[in-house]
């Protein structure tokens, strides 16, 4: 059901024990031991490291105007090449495009065509999702799917080339969450946790996750925001609580109304509370606004931290440390309906 968010516990911060195949009896024994060790590690809590707040001044500044060759559907950010600087990935109706800082803005460095497999039934307004998945010991990969194609793909960045390394069938919403569209409609079926709902009128527009942040006390935090068909967003916050930590609330749900399909979650100012960065829930083609809400321990702030109107529609919101200075940059992609050209705004 909409809003029935299935956010999982924040992932273990410990790196898995290497357990290669082979090795006969000793190798098998090693793998059993490694698995048990990892299971135990997964339940351990590392010493909390409270975040160190950094001052953030929210201010919108246009940094780039890009012709992406097709209408933009979604944005994601992550370090694709291991240089500790995040790339911004744009998913359009036809391509995956990797952007990096250039001069004072962003510029394209790589592009790959989406799989050519035709979609049987697709929604009238194109829908797309893109995430960057990090796996220990493997290069980070882009997972993306657009409704304009019959399947999605997985790509890795090699130099200035995107190499397709596999396909995805469902729409990736988070690294570990995917969903299918209701056939012919512009929303996903059931709930993002995979609930099997037959009623085509039940669903949600999108979901977004964040699991590389900590709360004020330094406990690992995972947030998952789900935009419902009515325009409300439910944010599930899961905190990795130690066994005897009575002050820790492992699960909270917050709610904000009037949210569009472009949104982002992050602790931009490193104060231990997550910011929910949203577009508005108006009609397609209307003017739009980016609104930043602080999701504190007492709930959603009464007033937004930041609000900025745009004459176009906000089609994508993304945060990432694109310059490698340790702070997150938040970008908004603004465009007129159906346009291939987007304006990229830096918001902090």
């Amino acid at each position: 059901m909409p809003g029935d968010v299935a956010a999982s516990r924040p992932p273990s911060p410990f790196v898995p024990t290497p357990a290669p195949d082979g090795g006969g009896g000793p190798g098998a024994l090693w793998r059993v031991v490694a698995e048990a060790f990892d299971a135990a590690s997964a339940e351990r809590e590392p010493p909390p490291r409270p975040p160190v707040p950094v001052p953030v001044k929210w201010k919108a500044r246009r940094v780039a105007s890009l012709d992406l060759g097709a209408p933009l559907l979604a944005l994601a950010a992550g370090d694709l090449d291991g240089d500790n600087q995040a790339e911004v990935v744009a998913l359009t109706e036809r391509h995956v495009v990797v952007l990096r800082p250039a001069a004072r803005g962003l510029a394209e460095v790589a592009r790959a065509a989406l799989p050519s497999d035709p979609a049987s039934i697709r929604p009238r307004d194109a829908v797309g999702t893109v995430v960057i998945a990090h796996a220990a010991g493997a290069p980070s990969e882009i997972r993306a799917r657009a409704s304009t194609r019959g399947r999605g793909g997985r790509w890795v960045l090699e130099g200035k080339t995107l190499r397709e390394v596999g396909s995805v069938l469902a729409f990736p919403l988070c690294a570990d969450v995917a969903a299918d569209l209701v056939p012919g409609r512009n929303y996903f079926a059931g709930g993002p946790g995979g609930a099997d709902v037959k009623d085509p009128s039940i669903g949600f527009y999108t979901a977004r996750c964040r699991d590389d942040v900590v709360d004020r006390a330094g406990r690992a935090l995972r947030a998952q925001a789900t935009v419902e068909l009515g325009g409300g967003v439910t944010v599930a916050l899961e905190t990795r609580c130690a066994a005897r930590d009575a002050s820790c609330t492992p699960h909270r749900e917050l709610r904000v109304e009037g949210v569009g399909v472009a949104l982002e979650l992050d602790d931009v100012d490193h104060d231990g509370t997550i910011e929910l960065i949203t577009s508005g829930a108006g009609a397609p083609g209307d003017a739009d606004a980016v609104v930043v809400w602080n999701l504190g321990e007492g709930g959603v702030g009464k007033k937004p931290v930041f609000r900025r109107g745009f004459s176009g529609g906000v089609v994508g919101l993304v945060s990432g440390d694109v310059d490698g200075d340790g702070d997150r940059e938040v970008f908004a992609a603004v465009r007129l309906m159906g346009a291939r050209k987007v304006d990229i705004w830096l918001l902090d």
């Binding site: 009037g258 569009g260 399909v261 577009s279 508005g280 009609a283 397609p284 209307d286 739009d288 906000v314």
Partner: peptide, 8 residues
């Protein structure tokens, strides 16, 4: 405000 861009 009711600004924004959702889906039809």
């Amino acid at each position: 405000a009711a600004l924004g861009e959702s889906r039809p």
